[in-house]
């Protein structure tokens, strides 16, 4: 068939290989068909008539139309993975490739690290992992060893503000107020002060009478004891063993 722009349309019929292969384009196509047939086996061994329209005289145009189909057919029939694993030194290739690549730079340039990290963090329970795998006591101890907590608190904590909001009542409840009061009274000898300031003549006189009377008791007892004679008296306080015994003289 003849076209206006000097191009021809050719209808290609693929057949089983003939002994008498034609020359030129038809020869090439026949050769390829034969090769494909050999490669893909039954796919090309079946006699399928394919009518192909080839635009122009260029062989590459023909190849563009034919090769993808052929390749697909070939690929579907080959175990490429097995082939590669069996025949290729993958380790050497990968090592060589890694040697030639700056992976860090590539990752930094091409990977959205923020998203990766966020996705990773979303998918794991960091708290639980830390609790299980980190010796927190050791970590805290190490941190505390390096810190002067007292100085830190002095510098950074407003102690006055803290004290201002402290509820003192429970603290006061725990204090031995009565004991403190007794302590103060005793240390200041408050009774003596009160006696001196308010007791006046009357209580002083009573104290004097009592003391004189006590002295008289002692003196009288001493005289009697000397007369009897015996060694002093047992003036133990009531409740003590001596006072609970029935013996009396």
């Amino acid at each position: 068939m003849e076209t206006d722009d000097n191009r021809r349309e050719v209808i290609l019929v693929v057949r089983p290989i003939d002994e008498d292969s034609p020359d030129g384009v038809f020869g090439l196509l026949s050769a390829m068909g034969s090769a494909m047939g050999a490669a893909v086996g039954s796919a090309t061994s079946t006699a399928i008539d394919v009518v192909t329209t080839v635009a122009g005289p260029s062989t590459s145009a023909v190849l563009d139309r034919v090769v993808p189909g052929v390749t697909n057919s070939v690929v579907q029939r080959i175990d490429i993975t097995g082939l590669v694993l069996g025949s290729v030194d993958l380790r050497a290739i990968i090592t060589s490739a890694l040697d030639q690549l700056d992976l860090t730079r590539i990752v930094l340039e091409r990977v959205d690290l923020r998203r990766v990290v966020e996705a990773a963090l979303d998918s794991i329970d960091v708290t639980e992992i830390v609790l299980q795998r980190v010796d927190l006591v050791a970590v805290v101890d190490a941190v505390l060893d390096q810190l002067d907590l007292t100085e830190l608190v002095e510098q950074r904590v407003d102690i006055d503000a803290l004290v201002a909001i402290v509820d003192l009542e429970p603290v006061i409840d725990r204090l031995p107020i009565v004991e403190i009061a007794e302590y103060v009274i005793e240390q200041t000898d408050l009774p003596a002060i009160i006696r001196q300031s308010t007791g006046g003549v009357a209580s002083d006189a009573i104290d004097a009478v009592r003391l004189r009377s006590y002295a008289t008791d002692i003196a009288t007892a001493r005289i009697v004891d000397r007369l009897l004679p015996r060694r002093g008296r047992k003036l133990d306080a009531p409740g003590e063993p001596e006072s609970l015994t029935g013996d009396e003289s």
Binding site: A192, D207, L211, Y214, D217, I218, T220, A221, L235, P238
Partner: peptide
């Protein structure tokens, strides 16, 4: 002892004598 003069604290609780 608090309300008692210091001189008299020593013999508080003892058995009182005849004169007193």
């Amino acid at each position: 002892d608090y309300s008692i003069p210091e001189d008299a604290r020593e013999f508080q609780g003892e058995r009182a004598g005849f004169a007193t």
